[in-house]
Structures are given as structure tokens and as C-alpha cells.
Design a protein around this nucleic acid. Structure first.
Lengths: 203, 203, 203, 203
DNA sequence: CATGAATGAGAATTCATTCAT
DNA sequence: CATGAATGAATTCTCATTCAT
């Protein structure tokens, strides 16, 4: 009678181990031994379930992306059809973490962003995720602009600004949280959007 | 007739070596050997001029901060006294790099931000720098709000939003440049500021 | 079916490796590579079982101390109750090494004595060992003095002299063995004790 | 007009530098830079005056030996002709340092003893010095034995015991000074000598 | 003689990965 | 699947010695 398979559970454990360790040490200094410890597993087991340390990172990045998308979709579903509400839902889903939801996830995402700078495979996933957010947000913004009788022309640029602001909020939350006024990020982003909407040329 | 001292020049060379290597490999993978190669020096010499690799990083961080401040001061001096112009000068000085001025500097600053997450000494310098920018920008924004007859209350939160947006622009520029519309950042930041100014309550 | 644990055996091997190498090279020049070679292990394994080279040294020092104490206790148990016999047993146990029992141990102990001069952790163990010997020998000498109807006053100073003579015998055995007459040490120590006993004031 | 030669003074400075540093760090860890600092000279100058670090050590050892011999000769000259007084003079000269005269010299001599264990050139000087002390002391002891009407047979073995006791006193003074009763060494050595003298067979 | 920079050969330590059990 | 020992290639750092001035 073969032992029941538990590969998936183990993979989750290991990914969570990397998440925990990477937040406080970064990727390079997250040793396989430390990941194993955080996952309450033996070091040897790590390489049974993952071919390499890099593979764990890639799985983690994908998981972080998927988590965001799940939360975003849930909030959008609840938001109804009004463009403004939908934009708020998107921003809330994105900022939930940046605002302090789970510090480990915030820290890990910042590390992922830095790794995306150099590891091609991380970069690929990261870009795909950012591109998807950019596209989705662009659509939402365009709907909003049209609702206000404006041209949708600047939507993409505006979306880029919003995403930059949110990614920057993550970075600041991870590196200098005590400098920041509470809850500054969402209103700032909203100002950016409203300011742009009002100034946009008519259709 | 001793050999003339050249420590300062050598330190610069080494810092530049780290800047170059770190941009493409990150701090951990910027080996001392690679730094030496980039600086066209022998590896042993690195440790003659710096006590440790970390010390080079700290020197680099301080240099990056100083460079920004020098550029900002120069632009502010040229900007005159109008609050709006001064804010523009500040943002331009900050974004000059984000916009692509020197990709190595952009990449390095992103790495510094990530390292600030974990290395206490880097964090200290990083925080001091961010705090200084926050204070300076808050003052500029407050002047602008008053000029328009508004309360200066929200100035600090707005400043935090602007800085987040700019730091995020660095991150995106380093990790996903080809996704971004050209020159999106400055207008987005301007929208954020104008939106907030107009919506701010009267004094 | 995990590989059976063998940490203790490996640690012994490594300690023995240091013992062998240190005797002929001293501690500093006993490189980890050389220790590994002497222990017939790979260099990396050394640091799997010990956190640092210093940790091996500390383990070795403790082992040397324990070895002496085991031999001393064994001889004392055999010696019976006569104070003179017990003193002889103590001195024999101590000098067994000095007299040439195991040259590697003699040499290592001399190195330990020199390291105790500077490494605080070595010094702590060394002192504790010397203090214990001093106390034990003082008790033995006091019993002997009383047996001869003398005051036990000078016992501690005499014990210090005996221990100095034995430690010195180690040093000379390690550095200049061929200069020394065979078997000089035990009689010399005995003379020291007898001379002092006879000259001690009555109780 | 050539600069006046100062080689001898410089060599002394450097030797003193090694003396100071070696006492607290041992020979291996006494870096040339540290020696230079202790000597208030530049590192490069060290190798102008000595071909190697080892050469400094050899010079230091020779100096320590010479210093002892000078003091011993001075004390012997003052001691007159009585064998007992001459022996006392010898022991005093030897122990002066062990008793705490100059801790740096004591510490350095202990390091020299340990180095003699492995460096052939140090060993050669060390042995010659010990052999000379052994011979000289043997003569003194023989005179004393004859004076008391005893056979001089055991003189050499006794001398070895005395020298071991004194060398051991150095070791203990360097590594565990606070454990030792004040002024224990000289009386203990005297007991050793008197005990042996009285027990020696008649001529 | 003197200075202090420069070199390069180690040294300890770390760590991803492999492997025997 | 699981364990934890084993390996070996890197990596940072040290330091005696050399050298240009």
C-alpha cells in the first residue's frame, strides 16, 4: 500500500518557508537549510520536491501573483458595474498588502521586484503580472473616463502611474514604515486618478 | 619620497565598480572579485581601501543620496520662488534618474531599496534620505496649498504619495521598462498633486 | 530509512585531526584543510559538524581536560588512602603525558596553554582545569602535612609550585626533549614536596 | 651628506613592536601592520630592516635570551662566592620576570616557548638558551652539593626540575595569574633544591 | 631611508546540491 | 518519501611581501 501522496502540501510548505525567510533575508541569503527549518522539513526533502532553489522562487512568485488576482477578482465581483467602484476595488485589492495586510508578503514582493531586475525567469513572470495589471487597470480607467465624457487616450499612462505609486508604497512599507502617515496611499492614488480624469480632454 | 596618496580616487573607483556590478547582479552576487574587475583593480586592493564589502555598499548609498541632493539643490536654485516651479524642480530632480538618465544608477537605487529592507546600516541611511525628501517635499507642497488658499493639512500624506510614486517608477523602470508608456511618471505625479490641491479644504 | 547518525564519531575524528595537526603546527597554522586531511574527511564536512575552527579547539581542550581527570581518578582509586600514595598518584597521572606517554597530547597541551594566553574561551576552560587541579592537590598536600604533624598553611602555595613544575615539564618536553635527563621530573617534584613538608611548621 | 644611520635604533623599535603585539596576539596574529603601528613606523619600513617577519622573531628571541643573561650575570657578580647565594641569584634573575616584572616579556617568552615547538630556527635558539641555563645551574648546584658534602651526581636532573618549575611559572603567570598565591614560585623552587640536597647521597 | 599603495596566495566559512540509507 | 551527512565550488577577508615614488 503506497504512502498517500502529499507532494502538493509539501510544496506549499516549502513555498511558505521561502516566503517567511526571504522577507527578512532576501533571496540569496535565504539558505535552503533556513527554508527547510521554516517549513519544519529536512533540508534533503527540499530538493526532492523542487529541482533547485530558484524553482522555489519561481513557484512563490507565481503564487503571489495568483493570490493577488484571486483577491482582485473577488473584490471586482462584489463591486458591481460602476467604473468608479471597480477602480476602487482594484486599488484596494492591490494596496491591501501594501497597507500592511501581511508584512511577510509585502517584504517578499519587494524582494521579488528586485530579483526581477536580474533573474530572467522571475522577470518574465513579474512582467506578465505587471502587464496584466496594466491592461486591466487601463480598461477600468478608460471606462471611467468615458463615463465622464472624456477621451480614453491617457488611460494607459495613468494606469502606469497608479501602478508605480502602489509598487512604491510596497517598497516604502517594507523599508521605512514608520516614516509614513497612516493610510496615505489610497487617497493619493485616488487624487491621481481624479485629477487626471478632470483634466482629460473631452471625447 | 613616498608614493602620493590616492585613496580617495581609489575609493571612488571601487564605489563605481560596485555601482556597475550591483546594477546587474544585485548586492549579494556582486562579488568582490567582480567589483575589482569592474574597477580594474586587484581584488586584494579592495580590502585595503574598504574594511568590508558592506562598507563599499554604505559608501555607495551615501554617494547616491548626495548626488540626488546636489541635483535637487541645483534645480531648486534655478527654479525661483514660485511654489509650483519649485515642486516641479524637485520632482524633475528625483525622476531624472527614474526617467532613464543613468540606468545603472536607477538599478542600483532599486537594489539599495531592497537592501534597506534588511541591512540595518543601509536602512538607516535610506530612511534618513527618504525622511529628508519627505520633509522637503512637504514644505514645498504646503507652500503651494497656501498659495491657492488651501489648508496645508494633507501636505505630508500627499508628499508620501508622491515619493511612493517616484520610487515605484524606479522599480518599474528597472524591472519592466518596455511595458511603460514614455514619460508617464511626471504627469501622473503632477495629477496627483493638482488633484489634491484642488480638493483640499480652504484655510 | 535515513542515514544513521554519526555526528559523535565524526566530531571525535575531527577533534583528533586537530590534535594531530596542532601538535606540529600550532593552532593558527592548523588549517581546516589540514585538519580535514588528518581526519580523512572533506573540508566542507568540518563545518557541518563544527560551527568554526575555534569550536573544534574548545572541544579539544575540554577533551584533554576530561582525559586527564579520568586518568587521575582511576589512579586515585587504585592508590588507597595513604596521603603520600595519593599525591604520587596525582603526580603520575599528570606527568604521564609530560613523561612522554603521547607526544601529540603533550604538544597539544602546550599549544593550549599558549592559546589560553589570548583566547578568552580557551582561557576559561584552562583556568577552570588548573583551578581544579590546584584545589585537589592542595587537599592532598594538606592531608599529607597533617599526617606528619605539620600545619597545612603552605599547602596551596606548594600545590602551585608543583603544578608549575609539571606544566614546565610539558613545555620542555615539547620544545627541548633531548636536553633533559630521563625521568627527572617526578623525583624533582617529589623533592619539592618532601622539602616543604619537612620544613613546614608544626601544627 | 648622507642621512645618519639609524638602522640599529629602528631594529630595536621593531623588535619592541613585536614584543608588545606578540604578547597579546601570539606570533601568527602579530601582523606586520600591527607591529609597525606598535613601533610607530610605516609597514613598508619593517621589510627594509628585516628580511621577513620570522627574522624579527629570531631577533626578539635572541634579545630576550641576552636580557636574561645580562641580568643573571649582574646578579651573580653581586652574589659573591657562596654557592647558596649564587643559586639564589640565578633563580631570582630567572624568576624576576615570571614573578611579574614585565608582563609583556613574560607573555612573549611563553609565546617563544610555544613557537620553539615548531619553528626550527626558534627552537635552535631556545634550546641553546635552555642548555646554557641547564649547564650553568648544574654547576651551581654541584658546588652546593659538594659544599654540603654530597655527591654531585643528581645535579643535572635537579637543575632540569628547577628550570621546568620556572618555565611553568611563566606559563601560569601568563594564562592564569589570578589563581596563584603571591610569591609562591621562589620558595617552591628553594624547597625543591633543599629537599634534593639533603637527600643526596654523601660523596 | 621612508611611505603607503599594490599584489596574490591562502584561509575560514557558506551553501546548493547530491547521496547513502 | 524522508533524513541528515557529504561534497566541492565559491566567497569574503587577511596578510606577508613587493614596489613606485
Amino acid at each position: 500500500m503506497p504512502r498517500p501522496r502529499n507532494t502538493e502540501a509539501r510544496r506549499e510548505q516549502i513555498i511558505d518557508g521561502l516566503l517567511a525567510v526571504m522577507g527578512e533575508r532576501g533571496y540569496e541569503r535565504a539558505t535552503v537549510a533556513a527554508i527547510a527549518r521554516a517549513a519544519a522539513l529536512s533540508p534533503g526533502l527540499i530538493h526532492y520536491h523542487f529541482t533547485s532553489k530558484r524553482a522555489i522562487l519561481l513557484a512563490l512568485v507565481e503564487q503571489l501573483v495568483a493570490r493577488f488576482e484571486a483577491r482582485r477578482d473577488a473584490l471586482l465581483r462584489r463591486a458591481g458595474n460602476d467604473p468608479k467602484d471597480r477602480i476602487d476595488a482594484f486599488v484596494s485589492a492591490y494596496l491591501a498588502r501594501g497597507a500592511g495586510e501581511d508584512p511577510a508578503v509585502v517584504a517578499a514582493w519587494v524582494v521579488v521586484g528586485a530579483e526581477a531586475t536580474r533573474q530572467p525567469e522571475v522577470r518574465a513572470i513579474y512582467r506578465r503580472a505587471i502587464a496584466a495589471r496594466l491592461d486591466a487597470l487601463t480598461d477600468l480607467l478608460r471606462a471611467r473616463l468615458r463615463q465622464r465624457g472624456r477621451s480614453g487616450r491617457g488611460a494607459k499612462r495613468l494606469a502606469a502611474g497608479v501602478i508605480a505609486a502602489i509598487e512604491g508604497a510596497y517598497q516604502l512599507a517594507a523599508a521605512a514604515p514608520e516614516l509614513l502617515p497612516a493610510g496615505y496611499a489610497a487617497p493619493a492614488v485616488r487624487q491621481m486618478i481624479e485629477g487626471a480624469t478632470e483634466r482629460a480632454p473631452p471625447r
